[in-house]
Computed example of a mutant assay.
Amino acid sequence: MFSVNHQKFMEMDELSRQKTPYFFIIDFLSENVEIYLEHEIEKSGLLVDFQSFSTPKQTKELHKKIEWRSYPETLEDFKTGFDQVQKNIRLGNSYLVNYTRKTRIETNLSLEEIFLHSDAKYKVFYKDFFVFFSPETFVKIIDDKIFTYPMKGTIDASIENAKEILKNDKKEKAEHYTVVDLLRNDLSMVSDEVTVNHFQHIDLIKTQQKNLYAMSSEIAGNIKPEFVGKIGSIMKKLLPAGSILGAPKPKTLEIIQQAEGYERGYYTGVCGWFDGKNVDSCVMIRFIEKENDTLYFKSGGGITHMSKLEDEYQEMKNKIYVPIY
């Protein structure tokens, strides 16, 4: 179904079988799978800051006023792909599509400065090519149990009763239920006794522009015996991540590629740290990429049959921010 770098996934399995710590990066379509042993990470020009693992880096204070401008496409341009997505949903080809766009930005911050000064659960600076500051865990593996935390639904936190509005919004709820169901099914491929433990948990995400609330849930299972210790095989089975693709996966991927009209590349791929026993990984969202000398911010959201064009356009723009404040 998806183009896969088989050998690299097997290498991940072998390293995890040997209990050798490593960091991995997998792009959206699993065409590029990169593995870095602990001593190779910094030499390779990578900077990593996870809750569970961090490359040492001296952070200097930021002595400048941040300049930040974004140039989103027009509502009409956004509508072209949005209409294609909605048409496919009406035809029954998909019931949730994660539709993303690429927005030119200008800032006086370097990608490395964005990495060093952003506040986020997961941050990676990749060789002056991209940086991301992701709030979204993909999977955690702890003592042969696997956990995933799909994040779907955001709202401007300054709105009165924002948390309640988000939790009770029909469209956001439908989107969240769908992605929880999808991820529960995905985890069932590699684990048994899958349960939803925390449902519709609300997180505050601080940004320089505005604060957002985001909705997530926790799903957990016991890894099947044939997948125990095989991190590569687990990732290969679960990717692309359901929360940034949609459902059903194969047809939704086709719809995305037609509607978006650009290559996601590493954006919405996953990366993670295996410490010799357990794994912490994230979805590469809140993502800035350098193309020649121009910076682009990639962002989007889930589309269902209840989605309204103006709301989705606004959500795509809301997510263009740096969490420096």
Rank of each mutant, 00 (worst) to 15 (best):
M1D: 13
N5L: 06
Q7L: 10
Q7N: 14
M12L: 14
D13A: 12
K19M: 10
F23I: 12
I25A: 15
D27P: 12
D27Y: 13
L29R: 15
E31P: 10
L46G: 08
V48K: 05
F50M: 06
F50C: 05
Q51P: 13
F53W: 09
F53L: 10
F53A: 07
Q58L: 11
K60T: 07
K60Y: 10
E61R: 14
K64F: 08
K65M: 04
I66P: 04
W68I: 02
W68C: 01
R69L: 08
Y71M: 07
Y71V: 02
E73S: 08
T74V: 12
D77Y: 11
K79T: 11
T80P: 00
N88C: 11
N88W: 00
I89Y: 03
R90E: 08
L91T: 01
G92S: 03
Y95F: 13
V97N: 05
N98P: 02
T100G: 02
R101E: 14
T103D: 07
R104A: 11
I105Y: 09
S110T: 15
L111C: 12
E112R: 14
F115M: 08
H117Y: 10
S118F: 08
K123R: 15
K123W: 07
F125P: 05
F125D: 08
F125E: 06
F129W: 02
E136T: 02
E136G: 02
D143Y: 04
M151S: 10
K152T: 10
G153H: 04
G153Y: 01
G153K: 01
G153A: 06
A157S: 14
S158Q: 10
I159A: 05
E160A: 09
E164G: 00
L166V: 03
N168M: 04
N168Q: 08
N168A: 03
D169G: 02
E172Q: 13
A174H: 05
E175D: 04
H176K: 03
D181V: 03
R184F: 11
D186I: 11
D186E: 15
L187A: 11
M189T: 12
M189I: 08
V190E: 12
V194N: 11
V196H: 07
V196E: 11
N197E: 15
H198T: 13
Q200L: 12
H201E: 15
D203S: 13
K210I: 12
N211T: 04
A214V: 13
A220K: 14
G221V: 06
N222E: 13
N222F: 08
I223Q: 01
K224H: 09
P225Q: 13
K230V: 06
I231E: 04
S233V: 07
S233M: 06
L239H: 00
S243L: 01
L245H: 00
P250R: 09
P250Q: 10
P250F: 04
K251D: 05
T252L: 07
E254I: 08
I255Q: 07
I256C: 05
I256F: 02
Q258S: 13
Q258E: 15
G261D: 06
E263Q: 15
G265P: 09
G265H: 09
C271S: 14
S281P: 00
C282G: 06
M284E: 06
I285Y: 00
F287Y: 15
I288D: 07
E289C: 03
T294N: 08
T294V: 11
L295R: 05
F297Q: 05
G301N: 08
T304V: 11
M306K: 15
M306P: 00
M306R: 10
L309S: 04
Y313L: 05
Y313I: 03
Y313N: 01
Q314G: 00
I320V: 15
I320Y: 02
I324Y: 06
